[in-house]
Design a protein around this nucleic acid. Structure first.
Length: 190
DNA sequence: TGCCTGATGTTCT
DNA sequence: GAACATCAGGCAC
């Protein structure tokens, strides 16, 4: 019964993170549909000290241990939400953080949500979550259906994908699991 | 332009 | 009680 769609999400996080670049995120708000292209991701998985799942399953991280293709939303720094795509085998805590997207449709709604225009709308994980109005209530949402959907796109040419170390973390900083689209202005700084 | 810091709340120890 | 996968504003240069 499992849909063939998003089947690639059952691979390991560091393989899926670059594969998600170029994929489309859709978000229904009222009678509007926001669409954005993923341009920056980071991989996190259970054996990784920087991952929320590193210390095992907790009420907060239980979604990460669930089936792939769901949304893991967490609240951080007292004021921000970040959203991840749960990946890998069920029972193994892995996810890919969506760090930045390129707005395609519903840009006026994103501007309203962010009170910003241009790249400031979505060039960071918390900015993206705010622009798309993704909050804790969406934790565990199914990305194959519902109001937030992930649309698979053909894999990008590897020459267009840049792989670097992750940013904004204090552990396992040397693990090169951050991926972004080369020469894309919507990628977050640093 | 780039560094520094305050804001803020959930989670875990 | 401390850590935290952040952001934005203020200030120095």
């Amino acid at each position: 019964m499992a849909s063939k769609r998003l089947g690639f999400l059952s691979q390991v996080a560091e393989d899926i993170a670059p594969r998600l670049l170029g994929c489309i995120i859709e978000r229904d708000i009222g009678n509007q549909t926001l669409r954005g292209k993923i341009v920056e991701t980071e991989a996190y998985q259970q054996s990784d000290a920087a991952s929320h799942s590193f210390n095992g399953k907790t009420p907060r991280t239980s979604v990460m241990f669930g089936p792939a293709g769901h949304l893991y939303v967490y609240f951080t720094y007292g004021m921000h939400y970040c959203c991840n795509v749960v990946v890998g085998e069920e029972g193994y805590g892995a996810a890919v953080l969506i760090r930045a997207v390129e707005p395609l449709d519903g840009i006026n709604v994103m501007e309203h949500n962010r009170a910003k225009v241009g790249i400031e709308m979505t060039n960071g994980p918390a900015k993206f979550a705010q622009a798309f109005s993704i909050k804790l209530e969406h934790n565990g949402a199914d990305l194959k259906k519902g109001s937030i959907r992930l649309i698979e796109q053909p894999a990008l040419d590897l020459v267009d994908v840049v792989q670097t170390t992750r940013i904004g973390i204090s552990k396992a900083k040397d693990v090169p699991w951050r991926f972004y689209i080369r020469n894309n202005k919507w990628v977050s700084k640093l």
